[in-house]
């Protein structure tokens, strides 16, 4: 019992990290109808940026986000303008190839710069824990969780209470109609891609403070992130949040009560069951989307 409680707590706390990374992915899909398979590489790039700031300028990991998130936002806007916008037809299919190319470029550049040695980031909160009863909660997980709550809340406010958010939601519902009523969909797309990449920076820092990583870690990440947004429903923010927590909790509980060998299998079986019953994912919309 004690183990299960531990596993649920661990699942919730580490689920927050995956939510951060998956939100960017599902947001970009929702607005632009493209699957950014470069998200994993961008997360790792974000982790290395935080690592650089910490190693060379001794900037705390969380404080460093004030720098890395805007930089990554700008990078996202640039990537969108340079590589995504020129795709005029077959956007969804071609974007997979284009963003995969971006992922390989980033991975190659990171491997050359940092080598493929594993890196883990350290700070006092990585090794110290908060004691509640007989449970120890590592501070880094608590902070990561709070970070994801803050960023999800901020995203919620931007989407629901700003003019830009209204334009974004309109573009999500129907890109062509949004264009017809005068929304600058291309601008919305660029900013959305920027936000998605900035979220990857935050997710990368959170990931790098809890796991050892190297440029190749992007493959593990992107496969898990894609699964999260498929389970949650492609383009659904709520879905990404629920599925992110759900995946980690299911895996962690299975791992302790049964065996780590079954952790992923049980989760994927659940995914298949959900997709059979709801092909659009937990919160996805059924009708096909129109450009």
């Amino acid at each position: 019992m004690r183990l299960i409680v531990d596993a649920v707590i661990t699942g919730v706390l580490s689920g927050g990290i995956y939510v951060l990374m998956a939100l960017g992915l599902t947001l970009i899909f929702g607005v632009m109808d493209i699957i950014n398979v470069g998200q994993g590489a961008l997360v790792i790039l974000g982790a290395y940026l935080s690592y650089l700031l910490q190693q060379h300028l001794h900037i705390d990991l969380f404080v460093g986000l004030i720098l890395t998130m805007p930089v990554m936002f700008a990078l996202g806007v640039g990537l969108e303008a340079a590589f995504i916008r020129p795709i005029r037809w077959e956007r969804t299919t071609l974007s997979i190839l284009v963003t995969f190319a971006i992922a390989l470029l980033i991975q190659g550049a990171l491997s050359l710069t940092f080598s493929t040695n594993l890196v883990q980031m350290h700070a006092w909160y990585v090794s110290h824990s908060l004691k509640i009863g007989s449970f120890y909660l590592a501070w880094v997980y608590i902070f990561d969780f709070l970070l994801s709550v803050v960023l999800v809340a901020a995203l919620y406010v931007v989407l629901n209470h700003t003019k830009f958010g209204a334009g974004l939601r309109a573009s999500m519902q129907n890109r062509t109609a949004a264009q017809l009523i005068g929304i600058d969909v291309e601008r919305v797309s660029a900013i959305t891609f920027g936000i998605g990449v900035a979220l990857a920076a935050a997710g990368g820092m959170a990931y790098g403070a809890t796991s050892a990583f190297n440029p190749n870690s992007q493959y593990d990440l992107i496969s898990r992130l894609l699964v999260i947004i498929i389970l949650g429903g492609m383009g659904s923010l709520r879905g990404a949040v629920v599925a992110g927590f759900g995946m980690l909790i299911v895996e962690d509980v299975t791992s302790v009560v049964w065996s780590p060998v079954w952790a992923s299998t049980v989760f994927y079986m659940l995914l298949v069951v959900v997709l059979v019953l709801r092909p659009q994912g937990l919160f996805g919309r059924l009708e096909s989307r129109r450009q």
């Binding site: 596993a7 895996e251 791992s255 780590p260 060998v261």
Partner: peptide
């Protein structure tokens, strides 16, 4: 025993 693809080692450590 855990699969080599495992990325989340906390439950095993716990």
């Amino acid at each position: 025993t855990y699969p080599s693809e495992t990325t989340d080692f906390n439950p095993i450590a716990d």
